[in-house]
């Protein structure tokens, strides 16, 4: 009886997810293994040529490398800044900590296009910063930071930073303070206490923060486009360009390259931090 009721409850959401999430993804993978076609969605016969092209073509190579470098830069910066902020927030009294965390949740709810637009307004040649700095006499020519990878880094870093801060702050706040006291009782000073106790115990938060930042960086098409312009295209831009060119197999192969990069990165992050040794659930 109960089993049957459970199945009846599970079936509708499961069918939706299988039919419109898993299914289309498998179909996308299937399409990526075909040649392009002018008239159909994809050509006849299986081929791995799309993937081979992505990995060998110097144009794709350059963009892959740029994507990787930019993502790593964002990841490193967000980790350092995020950890510092999280450490400060976790040390606050509970009510103020909650307020600070809600203040971080709010930007996450605002569409990325709005947040990217904010940076366009700030960083543009006639933007707020440029004007202010020129009025102050610090620079004599307009800022040229917009439409560079630097703008992408700044934009994505600030858009994704809340994920990192919230993850780490929650992990830090859930550490039993007895551990720190035990370390102190055993003679560890503040620095060693941080390195040997706090840091390892917060690794689940670091891992989930890094995963989120990495995965969301890889698929942040709108931010990359608005802040990077045509000169700073990333892997995700190529997926979109493939769609615009109606080259479905190529777009599909690029999408799965992106996914592979994401999975690889996730595996590396998890292997390096092994969050499970501290917490049951990552």
């Amino acid at each position: 009886m109960r089993k049957l009721a459970g199945l009846a409850l599970l079936l509708p959401p499961l069918l939706v997810f299988l039919g419109f999430f898993v299914g289309p993804l498998l179909y996308l993978f299937y399409v990526s293994l075909h040649a392009s076609s002018q008239s159909e969605l994809y050509g006849a016969g299986f081929t791995a040529a799309n993937y081979a092209a992505i990995l060998t073509d110097p144009f794709y190579r350059r963009i892959l490398e740029r994507t990787l470098a930019t993502t790593l830069e964002i990841l490193g910066l967000s980790l350092v800044i995020g950890y510092a902020a999280a450490f400060t927030i976790a040390g606050l009294p509970p009510r103020r900590r909650l307020f600070c965390l809600v203040l971080l949740l709010f930007p996450l709810m605002v569409s990325n296009v709005v947040r990217a637009y904010g940076w366009v307004a700030l960083l543009g040649r006639r933007g707020v910063l440029s004007t202010a700095l020129r009025d102050a006499g610090i620079i004599d020519r307009p800022l040229t930071i917009l439409y560079t990878t630097d703008a992408v880094v700044i934009g994505l870093l600030t858009i994704l930073l809340p994920y990192m801060i919230i993850s780490i702050a929650n992990a830090l706040a859930s550490i039993d303070r007895a551990y720190g006291e035990a370390a102190q009782a055993l003679g560890a000073g503040p620095v060693r206490r941080f390195l040997h106790v706090t840091l390892p115990l917060s690794s689940p938060g670091i891992a989930s923060g890094m995963l989120l930042v990495f995965l969301l960086t890889l698929s942040a098409y709108v931010t990359v486009t608005l802040l990077g312009g045509p000169q700073s295209k990333m892997l995700v831009s190529l997926v979109y360009d493939g769609v615009v060119a109606f080259d479905w197999p190529r777009a599909a192969a690029l999408a799965f390259t992106l996914l592979a990069a994401a999975l690889l990165a996730a595996a590396i992050i998890l292997a390096a931090l092994r969050p499970r040794r501290v917490a049951g659930r990552g």
Partner: peptide, 11 residues
């Protein structure tokens, strides 16, 4: 990566 989901759904 939702952009991949978008592409898969479009196709």
């Amino acid at each position: 990566p939702t952009i991949i989901l978008g592409l898969a759904l479009l196709l």
